[in-house]
Design a binder for these strands. Structure first.
Lengths: 175, 175
DNA sequence: CGCAACATGTAAGCGGTTACATGATTAC
DNA sequence: GTAATCATGTAACCGCTTACATGTTGCG
């Protein structure tokens, strides 16, 4: 699932500009997929060239320079083909995992600081996800399902970190 | 945290060959970090050139062609520097998330099949992680902590998927 | 004897990240 | 008026993935 597929997928849910797509993935805390503008705009350009998406705003004379895209029939077909063939792995990756794995070599106060930061960031993401799901805003898709999955995983992680962090912080860095 | 840093980190735990490192990340279900041989061997070559790791086997005459590496003092220092400066994100990424997000466009029986596959793969990983942690094998590091974190997150995910999958599978693909 | 596992490496290609560059609109 | 947000795009670089290439050891 590369950037192009994800853009196509998001456009299958609703019309959007490149900026909208960025806000969408950002709002989900960059879970499920992270993309910057540098990935999105080239992807949209390619998708339009391939006829998988099209501009929905005909005349932008005078108006602000925005490009609103819509998925085409062949785009929808292509997306289905992709979803039929990809073999999604269930592995979860997190930079935090890698850091914690070697935390015994990091300065103890930095471990503490990073745990504090990440926990409060997790809380913020959880709050945002719960609000999104409470308002029935994401009706047309499985966003609710994935948000719910993210919530239970983040909850489990946050609980574990809070209950077990002492064992990390008490081990001191060997010289 | 690129491949080089992770190799360096793993070598800070114990001496290993490139093959060992691959087995190590593979055993953890490619959680925390995924690397193939094509990432590992070039990384090790670079690290050795930089004096951050060194060969521990002097004479491999006649023996099988294996290169056992050990971290050096300057390697340990470099790793600490890296761990002091990285800002690990707490975002979790999974291909499965992306697939599920657009699952309404995938063939229903494929959704079912993928959920079955991923759930049994999760169970296998959970079993393996629990066994690893039960045997006190990973004493020198925080592997136990990270494995424990992975376990609670996978448990939460598996439970959620089992309890809520019907809502995904009942929605049918629109043409 | 043959297959699986052990073991290392190279090279091309691709895709994403990062940094840069620009400009309009809205809110204070 | 000026700062933040909206909005789009380019280009170079870097590093990972993939595929290929090769040889050994141990087991049945």
């Amino acid at each position: 699932m590369d950037a192009k597929s994800v853009c196509l997928g998001l456009l299958s849910l609703r019309e959007a500009t490149g900026y909208d797509l960025r806000k969408h993935v950002e709002a989900s805390g960059d879970h499920f997929f992270a993309m910057g503008f540098g990935s999105i705009y080239p992807a949209l350009a390619t998708l339009e060239r391939q006829g998988l998406i099209e501009r929905v705003d005909k005349s932008n004379d005078g108006g602000r320079p925005r490009k609103l895209y819509r998925i085409t029939l062949s785009g929808r077909a292509e997306l289905k083909r992709t979803l039929s063939s990809v073999e999604p792995s269930s592995t979860l990756r997190s930079e935090l995992f890698a850091f914690l794995y070697f935390a015994h070599l990091a300065p103890p106060q930095r471990v503490t600081q990073i745990l504090d930061d990440r926990l409060s960031q997790m809380e913020a993401t959880l709050k945002s996800l719960r609000e999104t799901n409470a308002s029935g805003a994401s009706a047309p898709s499985n966003a609710k399902f994935v948000n719910g999955l993210t919530v239970v995983m983040l909850e489990a992680a946050a609980r574990y970190l809070r209950e077990n962090r002492k064992s990390l912080e008490s081990s001191r860095a060997a010289s």
